[in-house]
Design a protein around this nucleic acid. Structure first.
Lengths: 269, 269
DNA sequence: TCGTGTGAACCATTTCACAGCT
DNA sequence: AGCTGTGAAATGGTTCACACGA
């Protein structure tokens, strides 16, 4: 794996032209995979790779190579036939497609362990996202420094909203506080909420709401593990594993279904 | 919402019979939604609800009611025509389907903020899962108590493996340590890994590997937010919103596509 | 009458297979 | 010769619509 790669092709136009991209309709399934490709590409770039083939990217992402090509071709024709894709350029293009070439000020409410983890996480402070404020209501926490920011009291939310115009609010509070926090965030004009609290929230119809459940993957894992355990002793019917052709040639064969996680978006009350 | 409901129907057989369930083939998409229903049902049960209709459950999960019925019917015929489903009973059945009626000992490696959050999280210590050990290599952290457990040094992994036979290993370390930790976990016989570290891992073919990326949802949110922002000023072509029929009657209409997150399962090297 | 359970129609996504560029 | 980009076929998932049972 990670073979020496050929020459990096000369990319399209100049820098990030405001141009033609961001146009085609990108299917949901693709949108979900783009961040996955992103992460892999970033790692490849960091490790010095300049050119990637759909085959390599696919095997690292554990998907079919044709899928990778189709996904990427939705963003434009960025590959070089016969050679592959320029990794760094691809990262840039995916950034654009995901809207990560803009600035999304984020506030995080609930600075417990999870809130801190999020505040310090790569993904939350990297390209596109900028954590502008951390809030809590616990007086033991308010005032504390986390990374470069001091935790503020949630009552200051309105000030921050007026100042920094955050577009995304992250709810990382205990379940009991989540709805109230969501109401406050919506109250100051934030129209995108990412909820980590284990609670179903109600928001106005024009608010984009997404949930992240840290244990869903664990539960999905339990499901497949249970199937394996069961089918191990009882062959009748064969449960999960598909008709493996035995050949290890194609790394993208369907071993165990590939699972997304989490979910339910919301818009209504 | 949440109207007074009729009488709870008398459930099937006795207690959790080893019986007939766990048989039908459950599609991946359904497996992902089951934990979502679970959480909602648990909340409903806690708030005193005894019976739920597919309609109510669907609107809380923001999916189509037919989908809920189809999903649930895959587990068996648990509903009562004309009445709905017994909420508590459903929770039990979904538990069974997900394999949460068994015991899955879990170890968490990397007791930073994320590891602590996971160790303390509902989902990780509730039904099915049992965190049996926390590991780190930082001498400042080793020995510290987190919840009911003391953090142990990763070198003690083999002892714990022999003693508690953990089936799931959670990697919550920094990216740089992730591969080594994964190797160690696999080395002591753990065949299911849940990786929170931002790093693509390589494991033997018979190991079930799943990734959770806390920022994927954020990125997906960025995508839709960007589309909204763009299409707000430029009507040509209309970007994301489907042909809304205007009627607010059906709560499950497709406003903004519903997104899962995260991803890529793995099995190979 | 109401709400489940489910065949059948519909729609989205995946995969194949190959033409076309480098 | 190699690898992308993409129609077309195959698959899988969703939604409809209605028969059936409580």
């Amino acid at each position: 794996m990670m073979t020496p790669l050929p020459k990096p092709p000369e990319g399209p136009p100049g820098p990030v032209a405001p141009g033609p991209a961001a146009s085609r309709r990108i299917p949901e399934a693709t949108v979900i995979r783009l961040p996955v490709y992103q992460r892999i590409l970033e790692e490849l770039v960091r490790s010095g790779t300049t050119t990637v083939s759909s085959e390599l990217l696919a095997s690292l992402a554990r998907v079919n190579a044709a899928k990778v090509r189709k996904d990427l071709s939705l963003l434009g024709s960025f590959g070089t036939r016969g050679a592959g894709y320029d990794a760094a350029f691809l990262v840039e293009q995916i950034d654009r497609a995901l809207g990560l070439d803009r600035d999304w000020p984020v506030v995080i409410v609930g600075i417990g362990n999870l809130g801190r983890a999020l505040a310090n996480s790569q993904g939350f402070s990297a390209r596109g996202f900028r954590v502008v404020a951390l809030f809590d209501t616990d007086s033991h926490v308010v005032g504390e420094r986390v990374g470069a920011l001091a935790v503020r009291h949630l009552d200051e939310l309105a000030d921050v909203a007026a100042q920094d115009r955050p577009t995304i609010g992250v709810v990382a509070t205990p379940a009991g506080a989540a709805q109230d926090v969501a109401d406050r965030l919506v109250g100051v004009g934030i129209r995108s909420l990412l909820n980590f609290a284990p609670r179903v929230l109600t928001v106005p119809g024009d608010v984009l709401l997404r949930y992240v459940d840290l244990s869903i993957e664990l539960q999905v894992m339990s499901f497949y593990q249970a199937r394996l355990a069961t089918s191990a002793s009882a062959p009748p019917g064969e449960a999960t594993v598909e008709e493996g052709d035995g050949g290890v040639t194609d790394p993208a064969r369907a071993d165990m279904p590939m699972i997304r996680s989490v979910g339910l978006t919301s818009k209504g009350s």
